[in-house]
Design a binder for these strands. Structure first.
Lengths: 143, 143
DNA sequence: ATCCTCGGTTCCCTATTGTAACCAAGGCTG
DNA sequence: CAGCCTTGGTTACAATAGGGAACCGAGGAT
């Protein structure tokens, strides 16, 4: 009744109670998901990766992260600071000098982020070839 | 000359050659960065986390991932499939049945993603309290 | 007096994402 | 046999996030 009743290939695992597999992503307002959204972010990832080496100034970050806009760098840094992952130090000088450094918490996060980066570096060839064959198959189907 | 010459706190580390700290994020079109952008994505992360447990159908994924739109689920799944991280199996039945499963490559990625999720679960209390104190400090400064 | 620096903020416009409606194809219901 | 149901999408349009560029403030250098 719920399945494709006549000819579905295997009617074995489709009752409703199976849906709550993970609890942490059940509700959209789940804290863990909110935090993941912030951490697993294009720019946050790069900022944390860069700050692991050493403290950097605003402009150093901007130059290091090719393609980031000043607006997004500011926003990203503020969010990371709010989450206690980086520390912002303002020196009352002119022109202003602002240093950004990983906090202890940020350092622990860097460990897992590094694992992600390493995984990507290790497997990038596989992914690129997967894309190539996918695109080939897709263009074949057009004919 | 380059620094705040008169009264900057520590003129020790600001020559230009220091900027190329990581090579993998030097150029925006870097493959690793492109792949990271795709992987470290709000929805991709959740899809991979869910598929680790078992193969799921399109509708099961949609129900499991609260807040995802049908359009974004489709898009996300296509990208993951293209990258060789998940496998899409279409059964020629009516109504259609489409199963999604992690590939071997996807499984290896899941390991590192799980580390990220575990980190988040472990440290969410710290982050939440960091946010609270940040917000308090911010509201104080308004007065 | 004017220009320069750094670390932003603001404005405007484009690009990505969400919302909702529609679709195909065949089985089931009346 | 007409019309409705199902799943797994696609399409058109609205909202929101992000990029680009201009501007700013404070004081030192020219």
């Amino acid at each position: 009744m719920e399945e494709g009743t006549s000819n579905s290939p295997s009617d074995c695992c489709s009752t409703d109670r199976d849906y709550d597999i993970h609890q942490w992503d059940a509700r959209e307002d789940c804290e863990v998901r909110q935090i993941l959204d912030r951490i697993a972010d294009k720019w946050s990832l790069l900022v944390i990766a860069l700050l692991e080496k050493r403290t950097l100034r605003f402009t150093e970050l901007r130059k290091s992260i090719d393609g980031i806009s000043q607006r997004m760098l500011t926003t990203t840094l503020r969010q990371l600071e709010r989450d206690g992952l980086i520390e912002r130090t303002v020196y009352p000088v002119v022109p202003p000098r602002v240093d950004y450094a990983l906090t202890e918490l940020g350092c622990t996060l860097h460990e897992t982020i590094k694992a992600l980066v390493v995984w990507t570096e290790t497997n990038q060839a596989k992914i690129i070839s997967a894309r190539r064959s996918y695109d080939e198959r897709a263009s074949e189907k057009l004919w």
